[in-house]
């Protein structure tokens, strides 16, 4: 069975999107060698999780956080590392906790509620995720 995914390979200034159709195993090897990559869609979470066990790149973490926050963006103001999640966006506290749950499963970590309470900005959330991923 073939699986299709969209891979986004990005550098500091550019973003390259590829559509890839491959067997999960083949894809796993692609992912193992690539660090700055994010993958979206498709039911391949398990394969991807296995491929991601070792450390998360900063860009990847930020990008995953932004994916969840975009629906709550206000006006034209871009979401950056300094964005104060509960203040600059239209997201309420419950939705923040739900987003955290999704991030937990995506990165296979747990972020305790008391830790979440101390997080204000996108950067702080990314720091926490990276720290917990490294400890895994």
């Amino acid at each position: 069975m073939k699986h299709g995914v969209t891979i986004c390979h990005f550098t500091r200034d550019h973003c390259f999107w590829h559509k890839v159709t491959a067997h999960p195993r083949a894809l796993e090897s692609v992912l193992r060698t690539a660090h700055q990559m994010i993958v979206e869609t498709d039911g391949m979470t398990d394969t991807l999780e296995r491929a991601r066990v070792s450390g998360q790149s900063r860009g990847e973490v930020i990008r995953e956080i932004c994916r969840h926050l975009v629906p709550f963006q206000t006006g034209e103001r871009p979401i950056t590392g300094d964005t104060v999640i509960a203040k600059d966006l239209t997201i309420d506290s419950l939705a923040i906790m739900d987003m955290v749950m999704e991030l937990e499963d995506h990165f296979d970590i747990s972020i305790p509620m008391n830790v979440v309470a101390e997080i204000h900005t996108v950067d702080q959330l990314a720091d926490t995720i990276q720290k917990l991923c490294a400890r895994r």
Binding site: E104, M113, N114
Partner: peptide, 17 residues
């Protein structure tokens, strides 16, 4: 204690945590 939420009525979500 440290508190972690799991998805509503989802035993696999609890299992993961």
């Amino acid at each position: 204690a440290e508190v972690v939420r799991f998805k509503h009525n989802d035993p696999s979500s609890l299992d993961a945590r």
